[in-house]
Design a protein around this nucleic acid. Structure first.
Lengths: 152, 152
DNA sequence: ACTGAATGATTTGATATCGAACTAGATGCC
DNA sequence: GGCATCTAGTTCGATATCAAATCATTCAGT
């Protein structure tokens, strides 16, 4: 079904974006189904960032890193903070700014998420194989990088 | 940056889903910025479906076709109908069901969307080139098909 | 030093999306 | 036929997301 060659370059782009949209949708909901109660992909992504890179970040830097607006970052941080997974303190060097930092509780929840994620990824690998992922990664990274540069 | 080879298969999958998520995000908001006021990707997708395939469809069939829940389809149809872009009538053969159909106004808006989309796709092609899209399409289609089959 | 422009964060209002719960109608099994 | 079950659609409450507007602070140019 729909295995025909794209009719034009515009059609090719349209199809790629269509596939990307569907995969993003399916994968994010599949992800959230195995996460602990209340943990979303957006929230996990932030915890993951801090676990990998450590330190403190300003909300606007996080927003830039994840390609979302500052408003969106404000919203997500406002879910994480009351749960005690991140801590937000004023930035002494800039009266407007704030600094976000992961907490021990945040690290614990992150570890739980990673533990739950492993088997799911293994299952996907077993069923789909690594080949299509290996083929897709480089062109996707290329497209993302270019799209990103375009966004101004 | 981050141009290293994935450390493991799980890492490979994680990266692919990450790229997919970012591209889906960037492309859908870029799309909506050039659309007529109030037109969203979700709404356009439905109009596009009817323009390409014609006929009448039940909301639940549309939901299946687009991999969203029935609740989501109800919501999107409830935006389109008051704008007069689709018409919804009872299904005489099933007292529970309804049938959705595009209107002339819906076709006109769809044509406008397509007209606005063309230049954007051309611009993307000029700046990114077709190569990464051509490379990505087949593996993405493969991944999407398998994920889809998994969803049970 | 002042003023205007830029930046950081938030709020507001809209849409999309999910899962869960609900209503109403259809189906199947005995 | 009748009752249990399934299916179609909707409603509800939550989260993510954007754009636009707002507020506070910083920065830059004169």
């Amino acid at each position: 079904m729909t295995e025909t060659v794209p009719a034009s370059d515009a059609d090719l782009l349209f199809r790629v974006f269509n596939e990307v949209g569907i995969i993003a949708q399916l994968s994010s909901t599949a992800f959230e189904r195995v996460m602990p109660e209340g943990m979303t992909l957006a929230q996990f992504t932030i915890l993951n960032h801090f676990v990998r890179l450590g330190g403190r970040r300003r909300p606007s830097d996080l927003a830039r890193a994840f390609q979302v607006t500052r408003a969106t970052m404000t919203s997500t941080l406002q879910r994480l903070e009351p749960k005690g997974l991140v801590q937000i303190v004023p930035d002494d060097s800039d009266g407007r700014g704030r600094l976000v930092e992961i907490t021990d509780a945040g690290r614990a929840v992150h570890a739980d998420c990673i533990a739950r994620l492993g088997p799911v990824l293994d299952d996907l690998l077993a069923r789909i194989g690594r080949a299509p992922f290996a083929s897709a990664l480089a062109p996707l990274a290329e497209i993302r990088t270019r799209l990103d540069a375009l966004r101004d």
